[in-house]
């Protein structure tokens, strides 16, 4: 099981499309790691998220790979993850922070 955490701005695009985002993330994790995702969805109350000290529209999506990744593999997966997020939520490229960590 791949732990996946999504910090999203409440009632903004990603949060409004939560079901779609869940399905897209499950598909991504299945394709990338041949595993299921355990998704923790964390909405940020309006007014409580800031980027550059201004109200934020950013989503922060992080997951832990089951095994250490090579730089090229990680880069490829991060790009796919960001593209998926943009396509599924309609957010802009500057509104997604994607993180794929190695297992501890």
């Amino acid at each position: 099981m791949i732990q996946c955490t999504c910090i999203v701005q409440q009632d903004q695009a990603a949060d409004r499309n939560r079901h779609t985002m869940h399905n897209a993330l499950q598909q991504f994790v299945n394709d990338a790691f041949k595993s299921r995702a355990q998704i923790t969805w964390i909405p940020v109350t309006a007014g409580d998220g800031f980027t550059a000290a201004k109200p934020s529209t950013a989503s922060i999506v992080s997951m832990t790979a089951p095994t250490p990744l090579s730089p090229s593999r990680r880069k490829s997966l991060l790009r796919r993850l960001a593209a998926l997020w943009r396509t599924s939520s309609g957010c802009g490229i500057n509104e997604i922070v994607a993180v794929i960590t190695d297992p501890t």
């Binding site: 910090i7 409580d48 998220g49 800031f50 980027t51 550059a52």
Partner: peptide, 15 residues
């Protein structure tokens, strides 16, 4: 760059 700095607030989050 400031544009990369994110600060997020939660209240009494157990996480």
């Amino acid at each position: 760059l400031a544009s990369f700095v994110h600060a997020i607030f939660f209240e009494a989050s157990s996480r």
